[in-house]
């Protein structure tokens, strides 16, 4: 299992916060305990999109040691994300198997953004037939969110055949974080990870 410690931010300024958190974790080349813990935690796959690790998805926010226990912090993608408990259990099991007593805490703020999916995660999504999100919309600070009555416009290409002629089927897909598209060229449906 390969596990990479956070190295460099890949896209977008929205990642600044998570990398700030992660920067407290030492370089794995030093072989320190905390780096090993980060490596273990970051290798756990997402339950619903198992081609992504929790680190690639951007839900893994940090690891620390407290009173002889490993504390892993994760953040939910959506408020009702049913995968959160499974993520928690998977993390605890992975660390337990490696000999660490661990518990998982939830960070609600700052709220998860699809901008936090790493470049490696985006490649993994595409490799598995999912379309990666574009830049997340930014609400004007303090102002109301604009109503959008028109069709959602995204410049996407089919993750299977790369054709640009795709049609939105529904903004709500089989998981909370995806929309459903159809490729008009190869006619295959595909999921697009929504921008939030």
């Amino acid at each position: 299992m390969t596990a990479t410690a956070p190295s460099s931010p890949s896209t977008g300024s929205g990642q600044a916060r998570i990398w700030d958190l992660a920067s407290s974790v030492p370089d794995p080349s030093t072989g320190s305990g905390q780096a090993r813990i980060w490596d273990l935690a970051s290798s756990v796959p997402d339950p619903e999109m198992p081609m992504l690790t929790l680190a690639d998805l951007g839900v893994l926010r940090g690891v620390r040691e407290h009173d002889g226990q490993v504390v892993v912090t994760i953040t939910p993608t959506y408020s009702g994300c049913p995968a959160l408990a499974t993520m928690r259990d998977d993390l605890v099991h992975r660390l337990r198997d490696a000999g660490y007593a661990a518990r998982v805490e939830v960070a609600l703020s700052p709220a998860w953004s699809s901008d936090w999916i790493t470049e490696r995660g985006r490649r993994a999504l595409r490799d598995h037939g999912l379309s990666a999100p574009g830049p997340a919309p930014r609400a004007p600070a303090g102002g109301p969110v604009a109503l959008d009555l028109g069709p959602t416009r995204r410049r996407l290409s089919c993750p299977r055949c790369e054709a640009a002629d795709v049609a939105l089927v529904s903004e709500f897909g089989p998981t909370a974080c995806t929309a459903i598209y159809r490729c008009r060229s190869c006619l295959e449906p595909f999921e697009h990870v929504k921008e939030i």
Binding site: P47, H93, E105, V106, L108
Partner: peptide, 27 residues
């Protein structure tokens, strides 16, 4: 459900039973 070869056989993934948890744990 686990069609990806890097996931199958991954011991730590077998945790489908979930207990009650505090949604504000750590907050």
């Amino acid at each position: 459900l686990l069609e990806h070869h890097d996931v199958v056989g991954d011991d730590a993934r077998w945790a489908f039973g979930t207990a009650f948890e505090d949604p504000l744990a750590g907050v």
